[in-house]
Every structure is written in structure tokens, then in C-alpha cells.
Design a protein around this nucleic acid. Structure first.
Length: 923
RNA sequence: CCGGAUGUGGUGAAAUUGGUAGACACAUCAGACUUAGGAUCUGAUGCCGAAAGGUGUGGGGGUUCGAGUCCCUCCAUCCGGACCA
């Protein structure tokens, strides 16, 4: 009987569903394990082979942990709010809820095909009102809280009000407006409106004014990467910076805890580094520079106050409040032109720009330590308004960018490091001894740093300052398909809705066009506006910042999650997803977790104990070459003879590199009359490794592979491709090898006649050795997420057992348990054949089996085949007992004919013997 | 530009602490069985060479008895950079 994967897989998927095999409950007496995938956005394109990579890994790990006796929570849901659905609605008029529902159905059926062990009874969707009710509730918690810097934790805003009433804001300086100071009496004298405005500067979720990339023609706000050279990527319409009222999360208050928290989680060093760099903590000072002949001051932030005497110019961000005012009459026009130009550029473009640009304002600042020194003030796009104070002091001698700037604009450079500086490159090290630096001259820079800061503070022209590159997260979008804010406006003051009014449901709209004045589409609804409700919606990361909590208690109508239950399931033990979420999603969910912890709603302050990043599966595109001005296509090897354009062709109609010509003609009507110039009777395509995407026709649908080879083959092949965290191109060809393995595995149990081959005969030592080797490998490598080597381990074991003609139940039964996490269907089928009384539905099935225990004695060796190297090059091998002594080895080696030959009769200088490793003879 | 990652046969890759480079597969070639093969099985397969042997983990340099692995340096590719999710 052949391995009939189609019958087997359908049968068990149905049975597992019917018997609710994967349903889990919080069982407080059992050890738990929470394994989570980053839930997907259900795009209209459906799953391609890149998506399931992480899901297969987490499924294997979940099943493995279950066999090891853990109560495993392994849920799945959908991040179902988002822009593509809204864009699709704009284009086609279909409601996002409808397309989203359809897309989710596709995703689910595709996922079910692969045989995942999700507990679907726990499914959540961020766009369901029953879910976003709690997203809104958490938002209100953040709105109603502030960060107590004394206690380093969030507290209800009522505690802050009490403190204001007792002692003004002395104890709690304002994070949003540091210069704000008031007494208890002041506070009590303020109007309610003013009090609310002050509290807004403390709230963890707050309202402010922000700049966005506004595209009038598209009627929408664009992301940085959707803006290219000042115009929209789609359509090429002009884009301008527009000021809008925005909601923010005060994530900067958590910056230090987000940094410290990295010490208690098992993320990769690369991931920790990325988050650390994103937070970008630095320390230094803010220093005021007076402006020549005016009363204005420019405040700069610098991490290198020790180089203050090397200041040769200042640069303001073109958006800086003083930028326009500073320009001298003769420079005004140039300044204005420059500012206009920069405003059309995205932050990304500005940072990536290699060409140096800038404009002199005509104004000068006064050097803070030397009132006679005039420092020219420039504007340049390399200084960003959002970082630090939006102004820098230019020290060309000590900073590479400043050096390039000074050189480009021929600004004279002051040397403060002496001979080290040759005029060619900036000296960025902190090791130099300062010269030409007033009271700092003669000090090493590291010491001067401290001296300079003290002097700055002493003179009252600045303060010591810790700075973060990270800024508060914009939490509102001028979009439709997102969570509405539970906020109603009372004039200028936002009022939270009562939590018993939640959820504030997203209303149906007739049009998804923007509202007036850059407001979101909700502004088009009269009933919405009548209630003065907020017209923004929340961003994509709102729902995904806490979904791991809802999975624990998904149906709870009274709370976002029962505390007893979240205490049990606790942190996610293993979180799997792509590095593209390295900073955004992970930092936001870490912040939300910390805030919920501070407010006493959960008992842990890091959401993810361990993080595994899967690599991206790239597409391997296929290219055909169209001869310009004809309907002919030329094979890849002959392109040089023709004038042709490369065209992406659907990879699914190419076998390896050979194009299926008939399929190509049928692919698009334009090509029905195509002619081909072949080489050796074939049309060969070119190839290119790039991101998998529909537009490049290089996506491969898992359904097709599951249909052709089965889910078990597909699962194992995805793992077999290579290390999970590595990016690699997809190549369908290799799947045959894994499929052959499963057929071979099947034949180990079932003979050609369809009879079970398994007997109750005792296992031989050789068979036991194979079994225990594979137990060890599977266990060790699954624990360290080296799934690809586990698959080869299985292949080696099956090759070994086939050669040994193994039929012993003692070997073949435990082997099924080992394979189950990787290939659950074939394992379940064979298990039921071997153990009819324990298989479903009579018993718990393989899911209830327990993991085989590795025993060293079955794999122990007494000898080792040693490689023998002469001067580091392996020349021969020698089988020696492991118990042999170094003296004995040396004697044997000196007598060995091969060794003697290579030494040409001369005695060896030294024999290096590393037990159980190798032998090296040094001459 | 900034940040992160990765470079090993024709291809995907493997290689506890530095210790036989290329396990396991794909592809290719040869053979067996077969009416047939896109089934199955056996063998070969880094490169140069008839062989002996030489050479080989992106390039260059270093440490070491010994380097894919450690150090320095250069190059290439991929991913991310705050309104795509």
C-alpha cells in the first residue's frame, strides 16, 4: 500500500477538529508553555510559502512541548485593521469588513491545510468590536495615567492631581513642557480648561500637534517611504508637510525601562542592539548660544561638550522655529528657497542623502565660552527637527559630517587636537588631549567632558542632559479602517467616554474619502460629528500591542483578561516572527505591557520571554526576454544577440529554468501568438532573487504544494531549507527529497502488500543505537530551534533502519513520537495502525503519547577512528580505543607506516593528541 | 547616510569548546529492475590532475601544532529606519 497522504491528511485533520484535540484550558496544576506567532495581516493575496515558515516552527515546538508534558497555549488570530483593506475599499467601494472577512476565510483554510495545532476557539481579530472594546479600554487607561518619575512607574492621573493640589508640580516636572512650573495655589486658581491642558502634557496617551506628509491630490497622509522626491510614489502628486492634531503615546517615559528590560529577555543580541539603537540613549549637555545683535538664543544638544572650543559653525534644522527669522536681508531669498525645498523631502531622503546641502543665514552666534568669537549660523537638512533641540554645534575637527560640511562650504576649521588632525579627516576618538581649548587645554577629552558640563551649568548657559533618539509614538491616523478613539471633544478639551459605553463602534460609511481639513473619513458622518467624537482612528499597532493577553481569555466580556488566568499563562515563552517588527511592534507591546503592569492589571512587565526571528523567504523570479518591437522571445543564453526587455514571468509555469511554452501562451492574451527563439530545443529563463510579491509573479502558493506532496512533506521541507532565522530563496525543486523520505518512512512500517511490517521482535543493538542517536538529535536540536538538522537526523535514522531491515516495535513506535511534531499526519496514521486501542477515537491518539527518553548506554562507543594529521594536514586514519593513553598513542604513531613515510624517516618534534578528537604530528 | 544580518560545491545546506570541510538533500552522470518511468534501488559527484598529489569556506593580512570558526582590514549581497503590516 502506497503512502496515500491525501487520504491520511484529510482524515486526521477532520478527526482532530471533531475531537477538539487542540483545545486548551488554564490548568493551574500543570506546567504551562505559551508559544505564539506574530499574527498576520490578512492580505488579499493569501498566504505564500514565506508566511508559514515561522508558523511551522512554532507548531513543531508546541507539539514537542506537549509531548514533553506541558500544557501548551498555541493560538492564532488576525491583525485585521489596516491600510490595504481601506485602499481596496477606496478603489472598489467594497467595505473593508467584507473583504477582510473574505481574506480571513482564505487564510484560515490555507492554514488548516498545513495541519497546525492552533486552538481556534481562541481566535481573535483586532477589527472585531468585542476585541477593540478592550483596545479602547486600554487606551483610556493610558489616557488616564501619567508616568511618576520618582517611582519610575505609571500611576492614575488622579494621584497627580492630588499632588498638584498639595504642592504644585514641584515633585513632578512636566515631561511635555519642562519649563512649566506652578504652585498648589496656582493650580487651584486655574480654570478647568487650563488644568486639563496641563494634565495633557503628563498623560501617557496625549494629544498634540504633529507634522505629516500630506498629499492633497490623494487626499491622504503618506508614510515616509511613500514619498519620493517630494511627490507621492503612487501617482507622483505633490506632498507637503502639514500640521495636524495627533494623538501620541509617551513611550519616551519608558525609554530607560525598555532598555533595562532587554536584560531579562532572551532576544538575539542583534535584536537587542537594534532596539537599543532605536531608543538611542545618549548623555551630554544642552548649551545655549546667544545670537549676535539679538536677544534670541539657540539651544543645542551635544554629546561632546568637551569639543566646545572646536565650534566653527552652527546648523539649525530648516524647520527650526528661528530659521526664518534669522536670515539677514541679503540671505532671505536663498534661505526661503532652501527651506521650501527641504520641506518637500521625507526624513528618509534627508538622512540617506549623500550630497551636502545647506544655506548660510547671514546671522552669527556668540561662542558661549568666548564672547568675542562669532560663529556663523547655517541651515542644513542633515539636522533633523525631531532630534535633540533641532540645532547642533558644528565641530568639523571632531565630527565626520561636520567636517564634510565645513570642507564643502569652505568654513575655516579650528584644530583642537593638535598633531592628530591633519586636515584630511575628523578625529572622532575621545582619546586626544585638547589644545587650543581655553580652560580645557591640556585635558584628555574624557575628563574635559565632565569639566565642560560643570562649567556650562555654572555659567547658567545650559544643563546636563540625557537624550533619546526615540520620540513619542504618533498614535492617530487620518484613516477609516482602525479603532475609533473613545473620546468626545468638549471644545478644546478631550473627554474620555465612560468605559460602560465601550465599544465605541466604527460606523458604516458611504465613502472612504478623507474628511475636510485633512481629517479622517469619520468626519464625513454627521451623527459622528454631532456627538463631537474624535475623527482619527488608531494605528495598526494598537490592536497588536496587547493581543497576546487576549488569547489567554478571549471570550471574557467583563475584563480584557482575568488576572488569575494571565498569572497562569504569564509571559509568552516563545514568540516567533520576522525582524521587520524589530522595533515598532515589539517596543510598543513591551511598553503596553509595562503600563498594564504598573497599573496592576497584569503581573509581569515583559511580554515575551524568548523571541525567535524567522528569516525571509525570498522569491526566485523567472525572466523572459522580449525582443523589442516584435512578439518574439529569446532564450536566456542568446539575449546578447538581440535588443530585448526582461519581463517577469509566473514562476509556476517554469520548470526549473525551462519555460512551459504552451502555458506561457495561455498565461496572458497578449502572448497567445508569441514566438520563441530556443536554445537546444528549450526556452530557458533568466532568474533573479528578490522579495516575494505578486507583482513579480514569483509567489508560490502553499496550497499547490500541499496538494501535490502533502502537508507533512511541505512542513518538513520548509524546515529542511536551512536555519529558521536565515533568509533564503524559495526553490520548489528540492521538495522531492523530503517527499521521498516520507515514502521511505512509510515503507518502514507498511509492506508493498499493505500489511504492517512491525513485529514484536527485540531490537538489535545497532537498531537501538540508531534510535537513541535520533532521540538525542531531535531533542537537542528542537530545543535550540535547529529544525533543519532534525530533518536530516530523521533521514539518517530512516536510511539506517532501512538498511538494518528493522521491524521491531520497540524502535518503530518511539520513532513515531519523535516525528509527530514535524509530520503529525503520517505519524498519527501509523500510530493508530500500531496501537489501535490508543489511537483516536478509542484513545487520546499520538497527541497523548509521551516523549521517548534518551539513554546514553545505547550510543556509547569504545573506539574512535582518529584522523592523523602531519603538520595540520590529514594524511591517514587510525582506529584507537578511547581509553588509550597519550604515551601509547605516540608510540603507535611513530610506528605507523603512513606517518613514517610522510616524515621521511625524521623523528617528529611533537605529537598532539586530543582524546576523542584528532592526532596531529608536528615535524 | 544610520542600524542589523549574511557570504562554504552547479543548488539548499552541515560542521559542541578552534580539531577529518561539504553530513543530509536537490541537480547531474552511470547502472539495476521494469512494457514504461516523473516509481524504486545501487554507485559516482568541490575544483585541478591519468595518477601521485595539489588546492579549497567572499578578497587580503594575522594569532595557533591546527582557523569555516578567533583578531584586523577590504569587498559584495539582503533586511529595517517611526502613516505598509
Amino acid at each position: 500500500m502506497e503512502y496515500d497522504f491525501r487520504r491520511i491528511e484529510k482524515k486526521w485533520q477532520t478527526a482532530w477538529k471533531e475531537h477538539q484535540v487542540y483545545k486548551v484550558t488554564a490548568d493551574f496544576n500543570r506546567p504551562k508553555c505559551y508559544v505564539l506567532d506574530m499574527f498576520p495581516y490578512p492580505s488579499g493575496a493569501g498566504l505564500h510559502v514565506g508566511h508559514p515558515l515561522g508558523y511551522i516552527a512554532s507548531d513543531i515546538y508546541s507539539r514537542y512541548k506537549r509531548l514533553k508534558g506541558f500544557n501548551v497555549l498555541h493560538p492564532m488570530g488576525f491583525d485585521s485593521f489596516g491600510l490595504p483593506a481601506e485602499q481596496y475599499a477606496l478603489d472598489t467601494g467594497q467595505h473593508p469588513a467584507v473583504t477582510t472577512e473574505k481574506n480571513i476565510a482564505t487564510f484560515k483554510s490555507q492554514l488548516d491545510n498545513i495541519g497546525f495545532c492552533y486552538d481556534w476557539s481562541r481566535e481573535v481579530r483586532t477589527s472585531d468590536a468585542s476585541y477593540y472594546k478592550w483596545t479602547q479600554w486600554i487606551f483610556l487607561q493610558l489616557f488616564d495615567s501619567y508616568y511618576n518619575t520618582q517611582l519610575q512607574k505609571a500611576e492614575p492621573i488622579s494621584a497627580l492631581v492630588a499632588s498638584f493640589e498639595a504642592s504644585g508640580n514641584l515633585v513632578h516636572p512636566c515631561p511635555g513642557e519642562p519649563s512649566l512650573q506652578f504652585s498648589a495655589a496656582d493650580w487651584k486658581s486655574y480654570t478647568g480648561k487650563k488644568q486639563q491642558a496641563i494634565l495633557m502634557n503628563y498623560r501617557l496617551a496625549y494629544c498634540g500637534i504633529g507634522e505629516v506628509n500630506w498629499c492633497e491630490a490623494l487626499g491622504t497622509v503618506l508614510a515616509n517611504d511613500e514619498v519620493v522626491n517630494g511627490v507621492s510614489e503612487r501617482g507622483g502628486h505633490p506632498v507637503v508637510k502639514k500640521k495636524l492634531r495627533q494623538w501620541y503615546l509617551r513611550i519616551t517615559s519608558y525609554a530607560d525601562r525598555l532598555l533595562e528590560g532587554l536584560n531579562k529577555v532572551a532576544f538575539s543580541d542583534a535584536m537587542k542592539e537594534m532596539q537599543t539603537n532605536w531608543i538611542g540613549k545618549s548623555s551630554g549637555a544642552e548649551v545655549d548660544f546667544a545670537i549676535w545683535n539679538t536677544t534670541h538664543k539657540i539651544r543645542v544638544y551635544t554629546t561632546r561638550p568637551d569639543t566646545l572650543f572646536g565650534v566653527d559653525f552652527m546648523v539649525l534644522a530648516p524647520e527650526h522655529a528661528l530659521a526664518a527669522q534669522l536670515a539677514s536681508p541679503d540671505r532671505a531669498k536663498a534661505v526661503e528657497e532652501y527651506v521650501t525645498w527641504v520641506k518637500s523631502r521625507s526624513e528618509r531622503e534627508r538622512m540617506a542623502e549623500k550630497k551636502i546641502s545647506g544655506v548660510f543665514t547671514g546671522a552669527y552666534a556668540v561662542h558661549p565660552f568666548d564672547p568675542n568669537r562669532k560663529v556663523p549660523i547655517w541651515l542644513a537638512e542633515y539636522v533633523l527637527a525631531g532630534y535633540g533641540t533641532g540645532a547642533i554645534m558644528g565641530v568639523p575637527c571632531g565630527d565626520e559630517r561636520d567636517h564634510r560640511f565645513a570642507t564643502h562650504f569652505s568654513i575655516p576649521i579650528t584644530n583642537i587636537v593638535g598633531e592628530l588632525y591633519t586636515g584630511a579627516d575628523a578625529i572622532t576618538s575621545k582619546d586626544a588631549i585638547l589644545v587650543n581649548s581655553g580652560f580645557l587645554t591640556g585635558l584628555p577629552m574624557t575628563q574635559a567632558l565632565e569639566v565642560a558640563i560643570q562649567k556650562v551649568e555654572e555659567l547658567g548657559i545650559g544643563v546636563r542632559k540625557v537624550n533619546y533618539k526615540m520620540h513619542d509614538a504618533v498614535f492617530s491616523r487620518q484613516r477609516y479602517w482602525g479603532e475609533p478613539f473613545p473620546i468626545a471633544w468638549d471644545g478644546e478639551t478631550p473627554r474620555p467616554l465612560d468605559s460602560n459605553k465601550l465599544p465605541l463602534e466604527l460606523p458604516k460609511v458611504d465613502s472612504y474619502r478623507r474628511g475636510p481639513d485633512g481629517l479622517g473619513p469619520l468626519a464625513n458622518i454627521p451623527e459622528w460629528m454631532d456627538q463631537k467624537l474624535e475623527t482619527n482612528t488608531m494605528p495598526g499597532y494598537a490592536g497588536s500591542s496587547w493581543y497576546f493577553l487576549r488569547f489567554m481569555d478571549p471570550a471574557n466580556a467583563a475584563e480584557f483578561c482575568d488576572r488569575k488566568i494571565s498569572d497562569y499563562w504569564n509571559q509568552v515563552d516563545l514568540y516567533i516572527g520576522g525582524t521587520e517588527h524589530a522595533v515598532g511592534h515589539l517596543l510598543y507591546s513591551r511598553m503596553w505591557t509595562k503600563a498594564l503592569y504598573d497599573l496592576g492589571h497584569i503581573g509581569f512587565d515583559e511580554p515575551f520571554k524568548q523571541l525567535l526571528n524567522q528569516g525571509m523567504i525570498q522569491g526566485s523570479s523567472r525572466i523572459v526576454y522580449h525582443i523589442r518591437g516584435t512578439c518574439k522571445f529569446v532564450s536566456q543564453g542568446l539575449v546578447n544577440n538581440y535588443d530585448c526587455d526582461p519581463i517577469h514571468v509566473d514562476v509556476n509555469i517554469v520548470d526549473g529554468f525551462e519555460l512551459d511554452i504552451e502555458a506561457f501562451k495561455a498565461w496572458k492574451p497578449d502572448y497567445s501568438n508569441a514566438e520563441f527563439i530556443l536554445e537546444e530545443g528549450k526556452y530557458l529563463c533568466g532568474s533573479e532573487i528578490e522579495k516575494m510579491s505578486k507583482s513579480k509573479f514569483n509567489t508560490v502558493n502553499p496550497d499547490m504544494l500541499v496538494d501535490r506532496y502533502g502537508a507533512d512533506t511541505f512542513r518538513m521541507y520548509e524546515m529542511f531549507l536551512g536555519p529558521i532565522e536565515m533568509s533564503k530563496p524559495w526553490d520548489t525543486k528540492g521538495i522531492e527529497g523530503v517527499h521521498r523520505f516520507l515514502k521511505k518512512f512509510w515503507r518502514l512500517y507498511v509492506g508493498d502488500n499493505g500489511q504492517l511490517r512491525v513485529l514484536d521482535t527485540a531490537a538489535s543493538p545497532a537498531e537501538l543505537k540508531v534510535l537513541h542517536q535520533v532521540i538525542r538529535k531531535t531533542e537537542l536540536d528542537t530545543e535550540r530551534f535547529s529544525f533543519n538538522t532534525v530533518v536530516s537526523g530523521f533521514m539518517i535514522a530512516v536510511n539506517g533502519l532501512t538498511n538494518l531491515k528493522c521491524q521491531s516495535r520497540d524502535i518503530l513506535l518511539p520513532l513515531l513520537v519523535l516525528l509527530q511534531p514535524y509530520a503529525p499526519h503520517i505519524s498519527e496514521e501509523l500510530y493508530t495502525l500500531l496501537e489501535p486501542a490508543k489511537g483516536l477515537p478509542a484513545g487520546p491518539g499520538l497527541n497523548g503519547a509521551s516523549y521517548p527518553v534518551f539513554e546514553e548506554k545505547f550510543v556509547a562507543e569504545t573506539t574512535k577512528l582518529y584522523p592523523v594529521a602531519i603538520n595540520g594536514k590529514t594524511r591517514t586514519q587510525l582506529e584507537l580505543p578511547l581509553s588509550i593513553t597519550a604515551e601509547e598513542v605516540e608510540a603507535l604513531i611513530k610506528a605507523d607506516p603512513v606517518v613514517v613515510k610522510w616524515l621521511e624517516g625524521k623523528p617528529p618534534k611533537k605529537v598532539i593528541y586530543v582524546p576523542n578528537r584528532m592526532i596531529n604530528v608536528v615535524q
